[in-house]
Design a protein around this nucleic acid. Structure first.
Lengths: 193, 193
DNA sequence: TACTTAATTAGTACCTGATACTAAAAATAG
DNA sequence: CTATTTTTAGTATCAGGTACTAATTAAGTA
C-alpha cells in the first residue's frame, strides 16, 4: 500500500482544518472552502469525519461558557454562597471547589480561594457601611481537593472601637482544613483618600 | 392623557422581557412568545424597540467574549502578572485592580484579591513539584482603590526541610499597602490522600 | 357613540448556515 | 484499465431569524 499522495493531501487538509477552526472558530463552511480551495461539501465531509460541529454549535458552546462564567464572576463578588448569617455574630458559607480553582498537576485547591471564602464571610458579617480586612493570621491544615465542599464557619469573637476580631474555621465533612483569625476594620463614614 | 392600562401592560412586558432574556439568553422568539402569551411578532417588535438582538447575535457576542477571555482565564490561574522571577529567591508581580475586584460602594479592593496576588507569587517562587501555602500572617496597611496598580515583591527569607518562609510586600507607587509572611510547604513527591 | 390612534396579530418573501441525502465526476491505486 | 477513494454538484429541508404589508383588536378621546 503506497497510498500516499492523495491520502496525505486529505489528511493534511484535515489536520490543518482542525487547528484552523480552533484558532478561527467563527468561520463558516463557505469561507473554509475558499481557504482550502475545495468545495463546501468536502469541508462538510471533513467536519463529519473529524467530529467538528457546525459554526452555530461551536458558538453556542462558547457562549454557554461565558454564561456560566458570568454567574461565577457574580459569585466572585462574594466567594462562596452564604447560607446562614447573623450580623455581628456568626455566619456560614459554602464553596465547592471547581477546576478553575485547583492546581492542574495535583488537583489541590489554590490557597487563595480558601482564603477568599473565609475573608468574604468575615467581611459580610460586619454590619457597617465599610468593612475592610486589616489583618489575618491563617493556617491551611490540610490540602483541599477538586469537588470538595468547603463549609466555612465564622464567629465574631470581640469588637472594640473600629476593629472586630473574627474567627473562621473551614471544614470538609467535619474535618478542619483551614482556620484563620481576621481583624476587620469597620466604619460608617466613607472617607475618600 | 390617561393612557395607562394598555401601555402599562406593554411596558411591563418589555421590562420583564429585558431581564428574562438577560437571565435566559438562549431563548428563541418562539419560546418567548409562549412565555409571555403574545404572538411572535409582538416579541419581535419588542426586541426591536428595546434594541435586543436576535438569539444568534446574542450567542455570537457571548462566544466572542469567551474567545477573548480564554487568555485572561489562563492568567487567572496565577493572579497578577509575574514580571520577574528568580526561583527560590525573589519575584515581582503586577496586578491592576478592576471593577470586579472592588466593593461597589467604596471602590476599595476586596482583600482577598490582594492576598491572592501575594499568595500566587509566593507559591510560584517555589521550585518544586508541589508548593502549598501552609500558613500566612498578613496585614493590610491601607485600602487599595480601583485602577491602582499593585506591585508585589516576594523574597524567600528562609528554607528548612519542607518549608520555606516567604516575605511579600505589595506597593502602590512605592507606598506599602500590604505585607505578608507566608509559610509554604514544598515537596517533590505527590502523595494522594 | 363614532372616530382615532396604539398595539397586536397574521402572513409572505427572503436570508444564512447549516443537515441529509443522491448521484455524478475526478483522482488514484493496483 | 478497472475498482475504489475522494471530491464535487445538486436538491430538499430546517431553524431562527429580518423586513415588510396588511388586517384585526383594543383603548382613548371628541
Amino acid at each position: 500500500m503506497v497510498v500516499v499522495i492523495s491520502r496525505l493531501a486529505k489528511k493534511q487538509r484535515q489536520e490543518k482544518l482542525v487547528d484552523y477552526i480552533e484558532n478561527n472558530p467563527f468561520i463558516t463552511d463557505e469561507d473554509l472552502a475558499k481557504k482550502f480551495n475545495v468545495s463546501i461539501q468536502t469541508i462538510r465531509l471533513d467536519r463529519m469525519e473529524l467530529g467538528i460541529p457546525e459554526l452555530r454549535e461551536r458558538m453556542k458552546k462558547m457562549a454557554t461558557k461565558t454564561f456560566d462564567n458570568v454567574k461565577s464572576l457574580h459569585l466572585n463578588e462574594v466567594i462562596g454562597e452564604i447560607i446562614d448569617l447573623q450580623l455581628d455574630q456568626f455566619g456560614i458559607s459554602l464553596l465547592e471547589i471547581t477546576e478553575d480553582q485547583v492546581f492542574k498537576k495535583t488537583g489541590i485547591a489554590r490557597g487563595h480561594y480558601i482564603f477568599a471564602q473565609a475573608n468574604s464571610l468575615a467581611v459580610a458579617l460586619i454590619n457597617q457601611e465599610i468593612a475592610l480586612t486589616a489583618k489575618a493570621d491563617i493556617r491551611f491544615i490540610r490540602p483541599v481537593y477538586l469537588n470538595e465542599r468547603l463549609i466555612a464557619k465564622a464567629k465574631v469573637v470581640s469588637t472594640s472601637g473600629e476593629r472586630s476580631e473574627i474567627k473562621v474555621n473551614t471544614y470538609v465533612n467535619n474535618e478542619l482544613v483551614f482556620k484563620g483569625l481576621f481583624t476587620v476594620y469597620r466604619s460608617n463614614e466613607f472617607k475618600t483618600e
